[in-house]
């Protein structure tokens, strides 16, 4: 990529030893450690914003940006989150994404900024005009979603984390519970090829 490389493009083969465990941080937040909260936020806000910006149509994204819904949701979630450890960081990522999506939906409802009611009144934020759809087209996006849902949770996290949230492999290793960035890379590669196979069905 000639420009706009992700800041983590280099050094991805380093083992994430320096990375504090997300769960350690959550634990510290629960004991009132502001610093830990800052670090948790720093780690998760960016990827979730990227994910949201790919998934929401632009009008909804603007609202999410304006009110900084991602940051706000994460703050609330981290402060009240219970014991997530046994389900792994990957499950946490999925949980956070759902929390953000729910929050955006709620906000839109409260502001009555609903899109025209065409689909039985349900707010389908992913419906039209999201950058992902612009890039892939509606049908391809649907096939992608369907194939994604047939993968294992680990495979799914690898793809969404790397491709949509643009995690570094070190971050991905933590999320997937892999020992190294390289192991995460291999897992993501396998997951992507599996996904392509699934899409071909």
């Amino acid at each position: 990529m000639p420009d706009n490389p992700r800041p983590t493009a280099n050094g991805e083969s380093e083992v994430p030893t320096a990375l504090e465990s997300t769960f350690d941080l959550i634990e510290r937040v629960r004991h009132g450690d502001r610093d830990a909260l800052d670090r948790l936020m720093a780690r998760h806000v960016g990827p979730l914003r990227r994910w949201v910006s790919g998934r929401l149509p632009r009008w909804a994204r603007d609202l999410a940006d304006t009110d900084d819904l991602v940051q706000d949701t994460l703050l609330r979630t981290f402060q009240k989150i219970g014991d997530f450890e046994h389900r792994g960081v990957g499950a946490l990522q999925a949980y956070l994404r759902q929390a953000v999506l729910n929050r955006v939906r709620d906000e839109l409802r409260h502001k009555a900024r609903t899109p025209p009611m065409v689909d039985g009144g349900a707010l389908s934020l992913e419906a039209e005009g999201s950058p992902l759809e612009e890039a892939m087209g509606r049908q391809a996006l649907e096939r992608y979603e369907a194939a994604l849902s047939r993968l294992t949770p680990g495979e799914r996290e690898a793809i969404v984390g790397r491709v949509e949230m643009e995690y570094s492999y070190a971050e991905l290793a933590e999320a997937l519970g892999k020992p190294s960035a390289d192991a995460a890379r291999k897992a993501a590669r396998r997951a992507l090829l599996r996904l392509a196979e699934e899409m071909r069905r």
Binding site: R50, S53, G54, S130, P131, L132, E134, A135, M136, A140, R143, Y144, V163, E164, E166, L192, L195, A196, M199
Partner: peptide, 9 residues
């Protein structure tokens, strides 16, 4: 097709 995913953001 999947390569288009990265072109969205």
């Amino acid at each position: 097709t999947l390569s288009l995913l990265r072109s969205s953001g």
